[in-house]
């Protein structure tokens, strides 16, 4: 016991009434834990399984299916930055933008900076093609980005 704080447990339990059964809360629980802890550890999955009355393998099945979730081997940095490289963004310099950001941060897509501040990812369409190329920082989307404006954005506290 102990990977999940009582506060996180409460937030997961608060999801129960919204769904017909506890199993349906699996994804929400994984999101809640990853948001708070920047990873979903093996121990956290075990405790989620206990809370949701599932078998550990069932939680692991779901967690490992979605590339969005990170285990303890590759935890997220404080900021998760997504650079879109799908067709609209690509035509308007998305790939170059991604390469620039990689160079700036010294990481490859999927990696986290050594100081644990930023995790860089590429995205397959963020649905903001009118603002290509676009960048997502955590849950917020920024259109019409350049290497310069992205650098500023990442630096912003």
């Amino acid at each position: 016991m102990g990977a999940l704080s009582e506060e996180i447990r409460e937030r997961i339990r608060a999801e129960f009434p919204k769904y017909p059964n506890k199993r349906a809360v699996t994804l929400n629980a994984l999101h809640i834990v990853q948001d708070a802890q920047r990873q979903v550890s093996i121990e956290a999955m075990r405790e989620i399984a206990e809370l949701l009355e599932l078998h550990p393998a069932e939680v692991h099945d779901t967690m490992s299916f979605y590339g969005f979730f990170r285990d303890e081997k590759a935890p997220l940095g404080k900021k998760r930055v997504w650079v879109c490289r799908s067709i609209s963004c690509m035509l308007r310099g998305g790939e170059e933008l991604l390469a620039d950001v990689c160079h700036d941060l010294g990481v490859k897509p999927g990696e986290t900076t050594a100081d644990g501040e930023v995790t860089l990812e590429f995205a397959e369409c963020l649905g903001v093609c009118e603002g290509a190329p676009c960048v997502l920082v955590n849950d917020e989307c920024y259109p019409n980005m350049t290497a310069e404006s992205t650098r500023e954005l990442i630096k912003k506290p």
Binding site: M45, P56, A57, E58, H60, D61
Partner: peptide
């Protein structure tokens, strides 16, 4: 017994025991 699941997807998909433990250390 609910020990075996599927881990990952696509080319990386494989069967997994509990939380992807070695079989001998799983339940």
């Amino acid at each position: 017994n609910h020990v075996i699941g599927r881990s990952g997807k696509g080319h990386n998909a494989q069967i997994a025991f509990d939380l992807n433990s070695p079989m001998g250390e799983s339940t």
